[in-house]
Structures are given as structure tokens and as C-alpha cells.
Amino acid sequence: MVPVERDGPVLGVRPYGDRALLVEAGDLAGVAAVREALEAAPLPGQVDLVAAARTVLVVLDRPPADTDGEVLRRLTHHPGRPEEAATVVELEVVFDGPDLTEVGELTGHSVSEVIAAVTSAELTVAFTGFAPGFGYLTGLPGDLRVTRRSTPRTRVPAGAVGLAGSFAGVYPRASPGGWQLIGRTDAVLFDADRRPPALLTPGTRVRFRERP
């Protein structure tokens, strides 16, 4: 990895075969900055961007050139959209998840305190992955941090709302999963026939609201 001076969000650019480069951005804020800059001004032949916890994968339709590395290292923080322009998605949640009580015990809160903390949090989709339409939501208060279940469930239903580490997430469809389940929503997270197909895309702001 070639180190760069830290005035922009890019810490370094790693080689990734003959059709991609991996940009090191350090943290979620850096990842968001790199993603926004490359969405606003894509590299020539840029096919896909995969924002993750610390990196952004840039997939190209051609072999990477030296100039790509130079452009990436010089990325600056994109001016960004004004706060009010960011999409806000409200998800109605029934808080009856099988792990809700345990999350309270693990974090030293009552169930109603957990619900209050989750519903008052200003969440943002940091990145996606795991399954089509699954967004990793950041912005939870630090004392809601819980580890994954030691034994994942073989089937988590679609719409299940879970916590793991510093993230919240909603399962777009039934799948195995190890997150601590605190509730469920009827919202359709992913529908390939809808435009856009995913409700949650990187940068989307999310609020959970308790369904009465």
C-alpha cells in the first residue's frame, strides 16, 4: 500500500487484480466521503462501488492504470448534499423481537429504555452487503452495543430488526442470521421490480418509529 498524506479521506490504494482497486478510507466517515466523491465524479469505466466499513472497492471495466491511483489518492471531501436533502426513511417497527429482553439485560437497560434509545437514534446507512437490500445502520448510542448471538439462527424472517456490534439492520428476506432481534417491520426493504429496488442505500438516513 502506498501511503498518502492525510488531507483527503483516502489513506491508501491497494491493488485488487486487473479490474479493481481497493481504497482505504479508515473509518465510516472516510468511506462515505470516498463513496460520495466517486458517485459524483466516477473514474472512467467505473462499473460498481462497494462501500464497506473501512474501504471502498472500485470495480472497473478495464485494467487499472497508474493515473487511477493518483486520482483516488487525491480525492477530497465532496461538498455533499445539504442535510435536509438526504433521503429520510421512517420504518414502523413492532418491538417484540425474541432477543429484546436479552439486549436489555446485556446493556443494563429496561426494555422500554432500549426501545426509546432505538427510536430516538438518527441512523444512517453506512454500507450494504450480506444480502440484496441489507443496510448496515450506524448512529446507535454507544451503550446499545451487543455482540452477535453465539449460535446464529437458521432462519430469521423478512423484516426482522436486529442489532450487532455498533450496527442496526433489517433483514430484507428470510435468511440465516446471527443478529440480536428486537422487532419487526412490514416495510419491503428490497423489491427488484421497484425503482429504486432497495429502500436503504448508502447515505440514506433512517428512523425507527414504534408502531402503537
Binding site: 462497494v50 472497492l57 440484496p132 442505500t201
Partner: peptide, 11 residues
């Protein structure tokens, strides 16, 4: 289906 990786869809 290239271009959808950002919503978790592989090619």
C-alpha cells in the same frame, strides 16, 4: 447485472 453492488446485488 453490473452496477447494483452498492445495494448488495452481485453481478
Amino acid at each position: 447485472r453490473p452496477g447494483w453492488a452498492s445495494i448488495g446485488v452481485t453481478r
